[in-house]
Simulated assay, not measured.
Amino acid sequence: MRVLAAGDHFVAPELFVEALRDQPDLDTVEATTLTASWPTEPFGPVGSGDSVVEEASGTEEDLIAALDGVRVCLTQMAPFTARVFDARPELEMIAVCRGGPVNVDLAAADRAGVAVAQAPGRNAAAAAEFAIGLMLAALRRIPVGDAELRAGRWRGDFYAYDEAGLELDGATVGLVGYGAIGRIVARVLGAFGATVLVADPYTDTATAAADGVELVDLDDLLVRSSVVSLHARLTDETRGIIGARELDLLPHGAALVNSARGGLLDYGPLPEALRTGRLGALALDVYDVEPPPPDWPLHGAPNVVATPHLAGATRQTAHRAARIAAGEAARYLRGERLAHPANETARTVGTVGVTS
């Protein structure tokens, strides 16, 4: 049995191998490794024609070479395009250690009969903590206060009433999207004393009530929330879900946080919303173009907190991701049902009449 651990400089190949060795009966698996350049180099689209995958790192050529004789691959960002599947028909299964395997052409995987598993929730704690951090940083002007003091300026004027920040205690915070990350954010906000509104068509009122949040439609959430944080998955349904019309619904001076996906937000109206005061604060960890170009309109804009896509960057996330992927690979090799199937082929694993 030959397995490829296709890691990078966050989820290193060695983490995959270690996690595989911890699985029962897999300590003798022959593991080869491949290391992609992410995050020292940004991820991006890879492929051509009708088979282009997103947020991938590495080349099709390097992956094809590394897959020689491999039945199972554990990865985070390796680019699995139709070309890769065509070149390696012996490949049977891919365990992708991220919440959505956007680096895999799932339709091509199904055509090739390759099962694809994913790792939902692997960075939920990290991303939720980071979102709360962005809220506090934006509402309380922590980054600009730090920068000004380091530059030798004592900004006592930030204590003036018109310049003072806002508390989460007593605030109404709207969460757009209520998956694993959103639910942790809501729990933390409740501890702060905030009222939490949720807009998510896939959440029911019973779940919301049990969690102590109020389920509302998106427009109602925007009208009522002094802080809005985005936590939806990027799909055709959610792309551009917050644009100029939605920004106009916010209370004057509201704060907006996006640590989910850049495509959820139309970045074009943001400078004007900041200029008019419709947005009192903006905190971003993701962007429509990553990294933002040198002439990005929000460079140097007031009341903006911007970080380079770091929400999931914790060591615990890397270890957790490797363990989840290794667990899926182990289930596949034992002929068991996968816990987190991502394509139709994966859903047949472990069913009657199907073996690995």
Rank of each mutant, 00 (worst) to 15 (best):
L136V: 15
D105A: 08
G280V: 08
C73A: 15
A95Q: 06
A326M: 08
R88Y: 06
V116G: 08
T276N: 02
A65W: 07
R347T: 15
V17S: 12
F80K: 05
L279N: 14
L166I: 00
G327E: 13
E41I: 13
E55V: 13
L249V: 09
V349T: 10
G156H: 11
R337H: 13
R278N: 06
E55R: 08
A339P: 01
E54G: 09
E55H: 12
R275P: 09
Y287I: 00
R331I: 11
A329W: 06
P201H: 12
G280Y: 01
D146N: 12
R275Q: 13
E344C: 04
A208W: 00
V116L: 14
G327P: 07
V3Y: 08
I181H: 01
A119I: 07
H340N: 14
A186Y: 08
G312S: 10
L282C: 06
S356D: 09
M77D: 03
P42A: 05
A119P: 01
D105K: 01
A194V: 08
A112N: 07
E60G: 11
R122W: 11
I242T: 12
A260L: 04
Q316D: 14
E41S: 03
P101D: 04
A6H: 15
L310H: 03
L26G: 07
E163G: 07
V116W: 01
V289S: 10
A126V: 07
T28I: 04
V17A: 15
G7R: 08
D169Q: 11
F10M: 11
L189K: 04
P79G: 03
V304I: 03
E14C: 04
Y159C: 03
P201Y: 05
V114H: 00
G277Q: 07
V213S: 09
V116D: 02
T355F: 10
D68R: 11
E272Y: 04
P42K: 06
P79F: 06
G133K: 03
I241R: 04
P271E: 07
P143W: 07
L166Y: 15
G99T: 02
F158P: 04
A339V: 12
L106N: 01
L149K: 05
L91W: 09
H252A: 15
R21T: 15
L15Y: 03
L215C: 10
A199R: 11
T28W: 00
V223L: 12
A107C: 00
T348G: 02
Q118T: 09
A31W: 07
L265Y: 10
N343V: 11
V173H: 11
L284R: 12
A82Y: 04
P101K: 02
D295L: 04
R261S: 09
A210T: 13
E214D: 03
Y159T: 13
P79M: 08
L4F: 01
P308I: 01
D266Q: 14
G182Q: 08
V196L: 03
R347I: 03
L333A: 07
E14R: 15
Y287V: 00
G268C: 05
A126I: 05
